[in-house]
Each structure stands twice: as C-alpha cells, then as structure tokens.
Amino acid sequence: MPLSSAEVEKVALLSRLLLGEEELRRMTAQLGDVVEYVRQLDELDTTAVEPMAHAAELSNVFAPDEVQPSLDRELALANAPKRDDECYRVPAVLGD
C-alpha cells in the first residue's frame, strides 16, 4: 500500500471530509493508485533538468491598478446556502 489509511484520514480531516470506514478503505486504495501512477515519474533521471514553476513559459503578466466594477451584491450572494441582506451566514466562528 503506497498510502496508509492514517495518511488518508489526515488528508480527509484537512479537507473537512468525513469518511466512513468503507469509504476510507476505498479512498485509501484509490488515492494509493493515483500516487502509484504518478510515482512512475521517479523512474526518470531529472538531475540535469531545471525545475519549473509553471507549465506555460510565460512570466510577468500584470494588469494595471485600475478599479473596475464589482459584482452586484445580490449576484454575489445568490448561491450562498445561507445569507441575509448584506452577508453570507455561516455556523458561528469561534476563537479568533
């Protein structure tokens, strides 16, 4: 197994996903397959290859600092599961 179920559990927690026992087993296997697939890249010798930060060979794409209209608030809030006239509403944020 390339991934342990503990590792998958941790990633699930960070992604705020609750997995049942059966789901955890299935995900551990499936995610493991993905990792195993990508791991094939390890077979390549990349010592002479310069690391790249982006797939496109572009850099310095900028926009001028000019304000443009924002979304209408009604539109912005339209998909919110819970809202009031001005804000999104979410279960209470505790602590900071």
């Binding site: 819970k82 009031d84 001005e86 804000c87 999104y88 509403r89 979410v90 279960p91 209470a92 944020v93």
Partner: peptide, 16 residues
Amino acid sequence: SMHDEVAGKADSRIDL
C-alpha cells in the same frame, strides 16, 4: 467574519 451578537443567533456573518 463578524459574530452576530445582536440577533443572538449562532451564526457568523461574512464580509468578503
């Protein structure tokens, strides 16, 4: 995020 104390509700309000 602002906690809505006035309404006494258990919601937080989010201004983005």
